[in-house]
Design a protein around this nucleic acid. Structure first.
Lengths: 157, 157
DNA sequence: ATCTAAACTGGAATGATTCCGAAATGGAAA
DNA sequence: TTTCCATTTCGGAATCATTCCAGTTTAGAT
């Protein structure tokens, strides 16, 4: 499963006994079409609305939560920033631009396996999160104001 | 700066022109004394209260934010879970137990430097976050219920 | 002792997310 | 194809860690 596809996700839903609804189809299509963006709930909501009118935000939250709990996608949870979702389930580092919020996948060489060492230390690794925060190439170019900007989330005015 | 100390933090405050207040002293002491726990805002607030009566929660938030912005400590930001603070500023992986919330530092071998490769890819790395989620040794022992539990944060009932 | 920018305070506001009860519906069985 | 019910959807209220605000206090320099 290198990259998510519409049909692949639908097949997985069936395999897991989950129902195929118009809302889920729309959300799946939105996920696949925007997979490079590591889309957040609101983008998915907006895109899915274009396909089927009136998908409630609650449904998007519930569906994305269900999908990631089922392992179809992976949720990247942030503080004070909208959670994001990705289809690439292989272990990699997400490069998060603090300026524009863009997230880029960075696949590490397979030789590096600190996880195994962690396992040996008695820690049962269930999930990995490795991220670097900084500025992507585009923002580094035009980075005049070093003032860090973050998308508000928990409660910034 | 391997580990934070009361005097070291106070000295850094002075160097940076920040004022030494009873509240900050109390917060510093709470941070140092509980550094192994990667304490959250509420623990710091509770501990600081024991040293100087009536430190407002707002002050604790502001102070911990100021300290981490100044680089005295590092904030570990979570979704739906209280943010945590650590004094170990060296690059390491935080082993976060999904069950009890305990956080353990895991220092990786210095040979591993995917960050340099990321830099070469045009990404300006300002900060790193590498975490594994799973179960610590203690919880693995008595782990009968695999139902993942998380400390509520953003809005769980 | 004076003065001012910085720090503190408590309470209100924020906003992404979750919860709730009720209504709709997918899809298996009849 | 009809029935049926567990699953899904819905909208609005609730949640709660965090931030904001406007007024008060204070550290520390002069």
């Amino acid at each position: 499963m290198e990259t998510i596809t519409r049909e692949g996700l639908i097949r997985q839903l069936k395999e897991k006994g989950l129902k195929i609804t118009p809302q889920r189809i729309a959300i799946i299509e939105a996920l696949v079409e925007n997979r490079l963006l590591h889309p957040g709930t609101n983008l998915i909501h907006a895109e899915a609305r274009k396909k089927t009118k009136n998908i409630s935000l609650s449904t998007v939250y519930a569906t994305l939560g269900e999908f990631s709990q089922q392992g179809l996608i992976k949720s990247l949870e942030f503080d004070r920033m909208e959670n994001r979702y990705e289809g690439d389930l292989e272990e990699h580092i997400n490069l998060v631009c603090r300026h524009c919020g863009k997230i880029t996948d960075y696949h590490i060489p397979p030789s590096i396996e600190p996880k195994d060492i962690a396992r040996r230390a008695g820690f049962l690794v269930m999930d990995a999160r490795m991220e670097y925060y900084g500025y992507c190439r585009d923002c580094t170019m035009k980075r005049k104001d070093l003032n860090v900007a973050r998308q508000p989330k928990k409660g910034v005015a």
